[in-house]
C-alpha cells in the first residue's frame, strides 16, 4: 500500500470518528431539547413544584441553582485566583509547588459524589451547617477550586513574559506588575474560564444531593431579609437545585407529570449551560477586542 492511500484511509478514519462524536452529541442534545422544549412555559419556569399533583414548575429550583452558583463562585474565585497567581507568578519550581500541583490534579479528578459525601460529613454533620445552601456552596467550592485554579493559571500562562519584563523594567514591583499589567491582560481569558466552570457547577448534582439537600421549601420572593427562613437569600435553608431535581423526580417522583417535568428541567439545564458557553465565547472575544484593537 503506498503512502497516498494510507493517508486517505487515515483521513477517512479520522473524519468518521469525528463525525460519530458529533452525531452522538447531536442525538443527545436533540433528544433532550425535542422532548423538553415543549414543556417549557413561563409558568413552568417560575411556579413552585408540586409533590403530588400535575402542573408544578421548577421556579424555586432554578432560582436555587443560580443562587448556589453565585455563592460558590464568590467563595471559590478569590481562592482560585490567589492560588493561581501564587503558583504561576511567584512560586519557584520545587517540591512544594509540585506537591500543590499534584494535589490540585487529584482533587480535580475526584468523583463529585465523593466530594458530596465529604461535604455531608464535614459541613452538614461536623460543622452543623445542616442541609443548606452554605454547605452546598462549600462542597461546590471543593469541586470547582481545582478546575478554576488550573484554568486561571493557564490564562496567566498565555500572557507573554515580555509583558512581565516590560512592567518590571518600568520600575513596577512584582505585585504591581501582576495586578496592573498581567491580570488586566488576562481578564478575557480568565472570564471565559470562570463562565465555563460556572456551567459545570450549574449542572452538578452528586456533590449537592447530600449537602444542599433534596427539598425546596417554598420561598417568599417579597422577603429579602436573609435571616428569615422563607427568604430567597437565606443561606441556611435547604435548597434543591435543578440538576438535583432532575435526579430526584427520576428516582422517586410521584407527581403524575414527572416525566414531563424531568424533560423540561433537563432542557432548561442544557439551554442554560449552552448559554453560559456562548456567553463565555462572546464576552471573551469582545473584551479581547476592546483591549487589543482600536
Amino acid at each position: 500500500m503506498n503512502s497516498k492511500t494510507q493517508n486517505k484511509i487515515a483521513i477517512g478514519g479520522l473524519y468518521g470518528i469525528a463525525g460519530l462524536v458529533v452525531l452522538i452529541l447531536l442525538a443527545l442534545l436533540g433528544y433532550i431539547l425535542v422532548s423538553g422544549v415543549p414543556q417549557l412555559s413561563w409558568h413552568f419556569l417560575t411556579a413552585p413544584g408540586k409533590a403530588f399533583l400535575k402542573g408544578g414548575g421548577v421556579g424555586i429550583q432554578l432560582y436555587n441553582s443560580f443562587y448556589l452558583l453565585i455563592l460558590a463562585m464568590l467563595i471559590s474565585f478569590p481562592i482560585a485566583l490567589g492560588a493561581a497567581i501564587y503558583l504561576y507568578e511567584y512560586a519557584k519550581d520545587n517540591w512544594v509547588t509540585t506537591t500543590i500541583r499534584t494535589a490540585i490534579e487529584i482533587l480535580s479528578s475526584l468523583p463529585s459524589v465523593v466530594v458530596g459525601l465529604f461535604g455531608f460529613l464535614f459541613f452538614v454533620v461536623k460543622l452543623h451547617l445542616g442541609f443548606s445552601i452554605l454547605s452546598g456552596a462549600f462542597a461546590l467550592t471543593f469541586f470547582n477550586l481545582p478546575l478554576l485554579t488550573r484554568s486561571i493559571e493557564d490564562s496567566l500562562r498565555t500572557i507573554s513574559d515580555v509583558q512581565r519584563e516590560g512592567g518590571l523594567a518600568l520600575g513596577l514591583s512584582r505585585w504591581e506588575t501582576v495586578t496592573r499589567v498581567i491580570l488586566p491582560a488576562a481578564v478575557p481569558s480568565i472570564l471565559t474560564g470562570v463562565i465555563l466552570s460556572a456551567g459545570r457547577v450549574f449542572g452538578e448534582a452528586a456533590a449537592l444531593i447530600y449537602t444542599a439537600g433534596q427539598s425546596a421549601p417554598a420561598l417568599d420572593f417579597t422577603d429579602w431579609n436573609p435571616f428569615n427562613i422563607s427568604s430567597p437569600l437565606n443561606p441556611m435553608r435547604p435548597a434543591e437545585t435543578l440538576a438535583v431535581h432532575i435526579w430526584k423526580i427520576n428516582s422517586e417522583g410521584i407527581m403524575p407529570d414527572a416525566k414531563a417535568i424531568s424533560s423540561g428541567s433537563s432542557a432548561v439545564l442544557v439551554i442554560a449551560i449552552l448559554l453560559f458557553n456562548f456567553a463565555a465565547r462572546y464576552l471573551g472575544k469582545r473584551l479581547y477586542k476592546r483591549l487589543t484593537s482600536a
Binding site: 515580555v162 512592567g167 488586566p184
Partner: peptide
C-alpha cells in the same frame, strides 16, 4: 530594584506595549 529600574529604564528586542 524597583527604584533602580525607575532610574535605569529598559527597552526590549520585541516591542512589548501593554494591551491598553
Amino acid at each position: 530594584t524597583v527604584q533602580i529600574r525607575k532610574e535605569i529604564g529598559m527597552v526590549f528586542q520585541q516591542p512589548n506595549p501593554f494591551p491598553f
